[in-house]
Nucleic acid binder design. Structure first.
Length: 492
RNA sequence: GGCGCUAUGGUGCAACGGUUAGCACGCGGCCCUUUCAAGGCCGAAAUACGGGUUCGAUUCCCGUUAGCGCUACCA
């Protein structure tokens, strides 16, 4: 995945995370939409790490971002490329702008250009300073003896327009665009310092022949600057598609305050990647119509940039959980098995005999029996532990709920012997045996059914009893029943 | 402050000039029942506000309001 490959399709897209944090939900959705579009168009997906800011960049985070993408099944065809290793390209481009008059050497102190949220110091007569046109752009250095930075020389007057697949034709007045920084001023012996975002993005998108820039709508207002840069570098701008932002329940931009915002947290909680993908795809996009359960292949087939919403959306964890249960319940069993296998390996309950043959069949039947009641993958190791291990404990709440009746120990003991003597072992045989016993003892079948469930799986909640007994096998069931009776007596 | 974007139930989407405004999550109720889920049925719940345009506006235009974004020698 590191070597550039020749592209068969002509669509080329990229996902360009900055390693200043983990892969968050919004980034994952951007990556997903790029990926869906690339795969559908038979195009090329490029991964580019935007690590030009040496101070904020944390190289160790790259690995987490890549593994998050891998977990979601979002693979790439070229890269990862690192901008920190491509500095010369950006410097050359900036100098080209300088040479053709579309950029200038700026000697102003940084504070002069500060605006917006950072404008406390830049206030002038109560007015917040915004667009700055300093004298440097006309070749008159504002300050002597300082090292210059390179700024883009935004045209005076006129408009910059571009087409966005999601937001349509968009235009900005050039007079509203500040002369943005291309290259920082140099430190020590450097001629110039680090390249800035707009420069490196545009240079790379040109160099990598990106055809569609699919990214968060927070970049919509940045786009005219980049369009101006494309022109200055004599390149044709790509097609833009800006995606609405993902917000927390309080309608603020999703952040750590909202709990889990990193995709790795969802992986660790035990969500199925395909369910997560399905959920994410439907946040800001819909195929039209009422279908919601869309597997990866469906998404690839139906995805359309034109169908992307322009409205910011709230991340709704309850809906994500619903998607997960849908996948747990409706996935072809063979697609679910490997995930459960992985979970059992993680928790140390896995046995090699379940890997193939009759063991695999048993494993498949058991998972199939369990899955309507599972919400997250780890439930297989915790709630359903008794299905995979003899080392399990009786849930105190289940005990309190279903072992109250003083007749229970005796009934369980009798049931054990009755089951042990059964000529055959299947659902109906167990059913009949239990009901016959209850009739003879004059108790309701429900009483013993519930008590038996607790005895053999340790839980108040489990699959239907007689199916559970079949899956567990006669030996286990009888053994657990025999153990339960004296245990109850001992406690009371 | 300036510029930009957005506005359908609590949430995610649908309806892209004509529907009793649809679906899903969540919520409430009922059914099923061997626990708990699942499933089935039913219910409460929305076009931000004000003007236009039109025979007719959720849909097109303008304004207001609100939210978000950008406004860094961050990305």
């Amino acid at each position: 995945m590191t070597e550039p490959t020749n592209d068969s399709g002509n669509v080329r897209v990229r996902f360009a995370p900055s390693p200043t944090g983990y892969l968050h939900v919004g980034g994952a959705r951007t990556a997903l939409f790029n990926w869906l579009f690339a795969r559908q168009q038979n195009g090329t997906m490029i991964l580019r790490v935007e690590d030009t800011d040496a101070e904020r960049n944390k190289p160790e985070l790259v690995e987490g971002i890549l593994s998050g993408l891998n977990w979601l099944g979002l693979n790439w065809d070229e890269g990862p490329f690192y901008q920190s290793q491509r500095t010369q390209l950006y410097v050359d481009a900036a100098k080209k702008c300088l040479a053709n008059g579309s950029a200038f050497l700026c000697y102003c102190p940084a504070e002069k250009y500060v605006g917006g949220d950072h404008a406390e110091d830049g206030t002038e007569g109560g007015q917040v300073r915004r667009v700055v046109r300093c004298s440097c752009r006309d070749g008159i250095p504002s300050t002597r003896g300082t090292r210059p930075a390179i700024r883009f020389k935004v045209p005076i007057g006129g408009k910059t327009t571009f087409y966005d697949v999601v937001f349509g034709d968009t235009e900005f007045s050039n007079d509203d665009i500040e002369d943005f920084m291309l290259l920082r001023s140099g430190q020590d012996n450097e001629e110039f310092g680090q390249p800035m975002y707009h420069l490196s993005v545009v240079v790379d998108d040109i160099d990598m022949r990106i055809t569609h820039v699919i990214r968060g709508a927070d970049h919509l207002s940045n786009t005219p600057k980049q369009v101006l840069l494309y022109r200055a570098l004599e390149a044709k701008p790509p097609i833009f598609a800006h995606l609405p932002l993902i917000l927390g329940p309080d309608r603020k931009r999703l952040s750590k305050r909202h709990g889990a915002t990193s995709v790795s947290m969802y992986r660790d909680e035990g969500f199925l990647p395909e369910a997560f993908q399905n959920f994410l795809a439907l946040l800001g996009w819909a195929p039209g119509g009422d279908v919601e359960f869309l597997r990866t292949s469906d998404l690839i087939q139906k995805f359309k940039l034109e169908g992307v919403s322009r409205t910011n959306g709230v991340f709704d964890k309850a809906k994500l959980e619903w998607f997960n249960t849908q996948y747990l319940q409706h996935l072809p069993i063979e697609d679910l098995l490997p995930q459960v296998e992985q979970e059992l390996k993680r928790s140390g309950l896995w046995k090699e005999e379940w890997a193939s043959g009759s063991g695999r069949e048993w494993f498949s039947r058991t998972v199939d029996l369990l899955r309507p009641r599972v919400r997250l993958l780890p439930d297989f190791s915790t709630w359903a532990r008794a299905f995979f291990s003899d080392d399990f404990s009786i849930d105190p709440a289940a005990e309190a709920k279903f072992w109250k009746d003083p007749k229970i120990p005796d009934l369980l003991a009798k049931l054990a012997e009755k089951l042990a003597a059964l000529p055959e072992w299947n659902h109906d045989a167990g059913d009949h045996a239990l009901r016959a016993l209850c009739e003879a003892e004059g108790v309701k079948a429900g009483l013993l059914i519930n008590a038996t469930r607790v005895a053999i799986v340790g839980q108040a909640v489990a699959p239907p009893l007689f199916d559970t007994m079949v899956v567990l096998g006669r030996d286990r069931v009888v053994k657990r029943l025999r153990a339960a009776a004296p245990a109850i007596v001992a406690k009371s």
